[in-house]
């Protein structure tokens, strides 16, 4: 469960968003420049709201009135960026293991092999990110975020940098994640078709304001 009620001034641009989401996949929909990435960065703690509160799973991570701002690394979120941002000096297996190591979690080979199978990345484990295709990189980034055992997964246009064929290659994995991984997600996109397939709830943003909120039918 995610509750967001924030305001942020970014130069000329004013962002004001308020919504509460119970859904498995909350779709953040809007044109580019609508403030989607800023909003996700605030949920991640990478950007600090000027005013307002953010609550993840009943845990207040931002409350400007009380001076609360939990740093990103203690929010236990996963973040999949448009550009996968894999660590170039580590191979795929080490990238996947990074979050577990940083959070001091015990090794969980069952979970590890489940995610590796789910995303079909078993054959890539020894490779360096520089030797992967765009689609493979994005699948590894998904696995890396999930294996840190986040309580919320943020996906910022994870298919945005891929061509149509690659998008169709990744979408089924995202659907499987939604149905099998048991982690609530916030999925940012400007693509109606993508959100129709994935989202269970929609937050529509226009020029920094939430214009509608509800089921997938608000996309119509």
């Amino acid at each position: 469960m995610l509750k967001v009620d924030v305001q942020k001034q970014l130069g000329e641009f004013a962002l004001q968003a308020s919504f509460a989401s119970e859904g498995r996949v909350t779709g953040l929909f809007g044109a580019s420049g609508a403030g989607k990435t800023s909003l996700v960065n605030m949920i991640a703690g990478l950007l600090r709201p000027d005013r307002g509160t953010i609550v993840i799973d009943g845990d207040v991570v931002d409350d400007t009135a009380k001076g609360i701002h939990v740093p990103t690394y203690r929010r236990r979120i996963g973040y999949v960026f448009q550009d996968a941002r894999l660590f170039p000096h580590l191979n795929v297996a080490q990238n996947l293991d990074y979050g577990r190591r940083m959070n001091g979690l015990a090794a969980d080979p069952a979970q590890q092999s489940r995610i590796v199978d789910l995303l079909d990345i078993g054959a890539l484990l020894d490779r360096r990110p520089g030797k992967l295709s765009g689609g493979e990189r994005q699948r590894v980034a998904l696995g890396r975020a999930l294996l840190a055992k986040p309580r919320l997964l943020l996906l910022d246009e994870p298919l945005g940098a891929l061509d149509e064929a690659r998008k169709l290659e990744i979408l089924p994995y995202l659907v499987r994640l939604r149905d099998e991984a048991n982690v609530p997600m916030v999925y940012v996109s400007h693509d109606v078709a993508e959100l129709r397939q994935l989202a269970t709830q929609i937050v529509m943003l226009r020029q920094g304001q939430v214009t509608s909120f509800g089921g997938v039918k608000v996309l119509a």
Binding site: A44, L46, P71, T72, Y73, R74, R76, I77, G78, Y79, F81, D83, R85, F87, P88, Y98, G99, M102, N103, R144, A145, A148, L154
Partner: peptide, 22 residues
């Protein structure tokens, strides 16, 4: 690329760990 350091932070790495591992 500082975005790699951001990615490390979202994966739970405290600032000194980001420095040491990335």
């Amino acid at each position: 690329d500082r975005r790699l350091e951001q990615a490390a932070e979202t994966l739970g790495a405290a600032p000194w760990k980001v420095f040491a591992t990335v």
